[in-house]
Structure formats: structure tokens, C-alpha cells
Design a binder for these strands. Structure first.
Lengths: 149, 149
DNA sequence: CAACCGCTCATACTTTAGTACCAAAATAGG
DNA sequence: CCTATTTTGGTACTAAAGTATGAGCGGTTG
């Protein structure tokens, strides 16, 4: 139970770190470095928690509980706000995500089982809502605002 | 000394993992997951190593100081090896970076004081070297291989 | 129910991107 | 100095992207 909830918190923390550092610099190395540091500390903490009972039985001393502050889920609501600002429809957002993967309009049409006309309409409306003039600008802005991965 | 050399090994392992997974599938989540698991285990190991002496001397001493060294977030830059593999000229690399910022060919021409023809030539050669067929693919691949920010 | 919105698709058009092939300076390296 | 590479630029073409406008369909909401 405890470890389960801990894991949930970690997932949130991971996500938060992800947003945070993508905004700043996209430097994946820093991100990975922090992950490494964090999980090392976590490992140490887990180990000490596991070892403690042993010491308890030997010395029968007092157990000290440590409180760790973890940021709540409010931390990664920033990108969501930006996303809501744009007021994209679900189809438009779906297409935006695929644009960032390098899909052409034809690719999108084939992948989503839509006509090229439909794709163009969606893409065009997407550009209007995002206030950009090309797919590369849309991708750049979307990544900068951190509304896509 | 021991921990120092261990860290060196870890750096190499990190690098190796990076190459390995970027080549295979680019799945950064798997990569991060492995990093997380590895460093958690490392942390546990470190902690157990540090705790051991405590149990030995527990009959005599009460307070034991633990010193833990954690690897700092090494801010190593872009994936130099992947970049060298592509064998891009400096102009091509320069243009690649600007492509990722959403520049059109005309923007590039104006910005670099070159003719549209020249830009097209560079861009086309860039695509050939990167084995892609469009600017969005080039951007996606460049970011995936971590050769641009 | 009527108005609205999102999704779909179409046609016609303009603009931009991308390819192919060529060639001449400029630059670096042996 | 000569050679290879890079950088620059051109023409001509095809392909793709993007714009504008209209329209039908289905669900939601006032």
C-alpha cells in the first residue's frame, strides 16, 4: 500500500520533471541525471527503511520518522492551461501530435482513415487557432508551450 | 576511491545505454525506466554497504555518521557521436537548427543572407544525409537523436 | 426545434517545399 | 599548387502544403 502510493507519487514527480525541463531547455541529460540522483536517493531510503527493523530488534531504540515533502499534482497543470487556451478540438489535437512525429498530410489521411481534404481542413483550422502559418511553426510552438510531448 | 571508479563505470554504462536505445527504438521511457530501476538498486546497495558497519559497532556506539556521495547532474551536451555519423557540413547543421525553430526556406534565406536556391540546395542535401523526406521528419529525427536542442 | 459546433469531404486555387541537374567561387588539406 | 569539399547560386520541374469556400451529417444545447 505504502509503496504503491509512493510509486504513484513518483509517476507524478516524473511527469512534473518532464514538463519542467522541457520548458527550460529540453536537455534530456539533465533530466536523466536528476532521475538517476533521485532514484539513487530513493534506493538508499528504501534500504534504510528495510534495515531499520533489524536495528530495532537489537537495540530497542527509538524510531525516527522522516517526513518528505512531495509536490502535489498542481505542479504540472501549466501545460494544460496553455492547451485549454488554444481551445483545440480533439481531432485537431490528435493531428497536432502526429504532425510533431513528422507525418505528412497523406500519412495522416491514411493513418486516421480520413480524406486528404479533411486533414487539410483540420490542419488549417489548427494553424488558425495556434496562430501559426506552417506545420513546423505549429510543432515548434506546441513543444515550446509544452502542450505535446 | 572505490566509489569514484564506480561512478566512472556508471558514466560509461549511461553512455552505452544511451547509444543502444537511441539506435534501437528511441523509446525514452524505457530508457528512463531502466535508469530509474538501476539507480534504485544502486541506492539500496550503497545503503546496505553503509549500514553494515553500523550493525557491527552497535554495541559500543550509538551515533554513526553516514556520508553519501550522489552524482551531480552532469550536463553533457548533444549527442556528438550521432551528429558525426550524419557527417553534416556546418552550414547544413546551422540550417537544421533553424528548421527546428519553424523557419521557412524564405526565412532562412533572409536570415542567412542567402538566395532561396542555396537554401533549397542545403536543405535537400541535409535531407539526403539524414535519410528523411521532409523538414518535419528532419526535425523529429534530429530531436530524437538528440543532435539539436 | 432551431442554432451551433465538430467532423467530414469536395473543388479550385496559390504558395511553399522538395528534386534534379548543373556550375562557379571559396576554402581547407595534403 | 593542386585537389576535394563546401558553399553558393541558377533553372526547371513535380509534389506537397496551405487557403478559401461551400456543404452535408450528427450530436448538443438553449
Amino acid at each position: 500500500m505504502l509503496y504503491g502510493s509512493l510509486l504513484a507519487v513518483l509517476v507524478f514527480l516524473l511527469k512534473w520533471l518532464q514538463w519542467k525541463f522541457l520548458i527550460v531547455d529540453n536537455s534530456i541529460e539533465i533530466y536523466i541525471g536528476l532521475i538517476a540522483v533521485f532514484f539513487t536517493i530513493l534506493g538508499i531510503w528504501v534500504a534504510t527503511q528495510l534495515v531499520k527493523p533489524k536495528i530495532e530488534t537489537i537495540t530497542e531504540t527509538v524510531i525516527v520518522k522522516k517526513e518528505i515533502y512531495v509536490p502535489g499534482p498542481a505542479a504540472f497543470s501549466i501545460n494544460q492551461k496553455e492547451l485549454e487556451k488554444l481551445n483545440l478540438s480533439s481531432r485537431e489535437y490528435e493531428i497536432l501530435q502526429l504532425l510533431a512525429k513528422g507525418y505528412s498530410n497523406a500519412d495522416l489521411a491514411g493513418n486516421l482513415f480520413l480524406s486528404l481534404s479533411t486533414i487539410k481542413t483540420h490542419v488549417s483550422n489548427l494553424y488558425f487557432k495556434m496562430d501559426v502559418k506552417s506545420r513546423t511553426q505549429a510543432i515548434e510552438k506546441a513543444k515550446r508551450l509544452n502542450i505535446i510531448q
